[in-house]
Design a protein around this nucleic acid. Sequence first.
DNA 1: AATGAATGAGGCTTCATTCAT
DNA 2: AATGAATGAAGCCTCATTCAT
Lengths: 201, 201, 201, 201
Amino acid sequence: MARRVTGDRAHLEEPVRQRLLAEATRLFAGRGFESTSVQEIVAAAGVTKGAMYHYFDSKDDLLREIYARVLRLQMERLNRFAEAEGPVAERLHAAARDVVVTTVDNLDDSKIFFRSMHQLAPEAYKSVRAERRRYHERFRDLVMEGQRDGVFRDDVPAEMVVDFFFGSVHHLGTWYHPDGPLSGQEVGRHFADLLLNSLRP
Amino acid sequence: MARRVTGDRAHLEEPVRQRLLAEATRLFAGRGFESTSVQEIVAAAGVTKGAMYHYFDSKDDLLREIYARVLRLQMERLNRFAEAEGPVAERLHAAARDVVVTTVDNLDDSKIFFRSMHQLAPEAYKSVRAERRRYHERFRDLVMEGQRDGVFRDDVPAEMVVDFFFGSVHHLGTWYHPDGPLSGQEVGRHFADLLLNSLRP
Amino acid sequence: MARRVTGDRAHLEEPVRQRLLAEATRLFAGRGFESTSVQEIVAAAGVTKGAMYHYFDSKDDLLREIYARVLRLQMERLNRFAEAEGPVAERLHAAARDVVVTTVDNLDDSKIFFRSMHQLAPEAYKSVRAERRRYHERFRDLVMEGQRDGVFRDDVPAEMVVDFFFGSVHHLGTWYHPDGPLSGQEVGRHFADLLLNSLRP
Amino acid sequence: MARRVTGDRAHLEEPVRQRLLAEATRLFAGRGFESTSVQEIVAAAGVTKGAMYHYFDSKDDLLREIYARVLRLQMERLNRFAEAEGPVAERLHAAARDVVVTTVDNLDDSKIFFRSMHQLAPEAYKSVRAERRRYHERFRDLVMEGQRDGVFRDDVPAEMVVDFFFGSVHHLGTWYHPDGPLSGQEVGRHFADLLLNSLRP
DNA sequence: AATGAATGAGGCTTCATTCAT
DNA sequence: AATGAATGAAGCCTCATTCAT
């Protein structure tokens, strides 16, 4: 058991917690939450079960943490783009592009997100849905802003445009491969183009 | 109870088989494949485990049948639209619209499709992927046809357009509700419009 | 799962169920409920864990069944004596004697009864308390009848006399040994004598 | 008391030790020894596990201390009454009364005593049994003294009378409630009366 | 005197599947 | 065609205890 001997408490603790989260993410994305055993996770992280239960309440807790991390990250990024300067079309394009790139960079998170959501306990489930909803609303507001400004067609519900687009984004985990012909940047640009184009009046 | 030997066999057998498939579909969509026990399925279908193992080799077999049914149905429908007469834009629009309507009418199938695919045994998994791929190719060919004809923009890979669109379609299970404000037909039209619009040169 | 099948089915089923209950009783009495593992029980009964969970919902269920059996048996016997003919002093003496003999004949049940009651789930716990209470009340009524008739002293609450006496009875499991100097009948007679004597006006 | 070297050491140490014992007693009485975790005890005492293992060798050690305390206390009190002046009937009555009052005042100790005795390691178990036996013998000697003097009936084994009476006493934890209709003093008087009356020749 | 991360063994339970009937 | 008892493997989790600090 290779140990860090640095002294600072955080350096001893964080690695184990982080390693557990990282391995859990990788495994959940690969086999699914239900098909991944706690034993597999701790073995991958090089610790014992007891250690895992020292840092997390349960296997579910691990999943909750993953969701929390993803939601936080995505919301932060979206806010940054939505609050930027410039015409709404540009801001939407940039945000759309960024969410694709971020998704592609964290493909495991994305695979887990919709596949395992129903494994969350009712309470956690609601909380994730609510946070996710706020995220969608933020994005939808950009669409509506463009519709009000007349730069986007308004004969289609903004809400649905968001669902339409995010379906595409979440589906990336199903077909995108980092070593395929397209880079994340390229897919991001294409997706953003398709979105903006579909909104042309 | 007198026993039939041939012909009517189906009448005795199918109901149980069908009930099992129907309940399995409902339950898999609700809780996920792994979280649904064989016991729950047979209880919902009103039979015993022995009966289930008479009709199906395993729990996996049940899942395979569900995939087979979905794939068959969707391919049939797509073919019908693709082979129709008329300009490619119209055929694509109709096909896109139809897949949305069909998906919305069989939302449980859709929920299962991507969530549980990784639970299939490697062999079955490959087979489903291959069939799915043929389906995508058929759809992609319509896009490419339009690009060749110059009615669709060709600065975006047709393959990716298909993934873009089907992401949206598969995501329907996440947000669409039959008793929500939009009918399946409406969503179908909007989605098809968005797709065609996004392809405008 | 509380099973109970009659007919020839029972011949196949009962033995396993019975064996499990018998071994569980023996082990719970010996080491206590919490210190007895399901593994030990099934090993003693010569079956696998799966078999146990086929007949019982849980380890708790096993305990509940033991309580149910004891309560049923004791109530039946008490009723028989209470409803007999004759002076109340005689009926009480006979009932007191019988409960001692029965307790001594089922010493394991008795050891379990008070030691493990708090392991029952709240619901089962209440139910056992309630049934136990009815038993006590039946016994108490005999004491009160004697007090009304003037054959028992009435300067002591009948309720407490019952608690006083049953304390002695339940304590038998702590000191009585079948191969000790006293037979169950002898202890029964002595206890009944002490009770009746203590009630002399 | 072999501990305590410096004096003020004790002021720091004893409170924690006492708190741990007190909370352990409360919890063991409530849920039973096996169902109480070390974590619960230290949490209730407001310290960490390390602290507990500083003062006690193990969870078992905690239990041993509780038994030791109870045994010491009861033996002391019994001796005081047995060695008093006066007729044996009076001394027995006083001792019987006192043990009831003391039991009622330390109901948690009493609940633990018989419920958890089998959790002690063999060695500790034997030691407790032996001490308990000495206690019983002391009490029994009073009964035999009265029988020799002819003030108690002698057609019942003195040993059994003791078991009879202490069964009632130990059972107090099952039904007595401090805020019920009877005070400990009242129950003590009644119990002593019943005992003495049952011994009338 | 006290912390708290980590261990390792063991606990209860679930479940897909088989098999004799 | 169907039953349901029984299996055996695996799953999640708890817990008393240790150890470096």
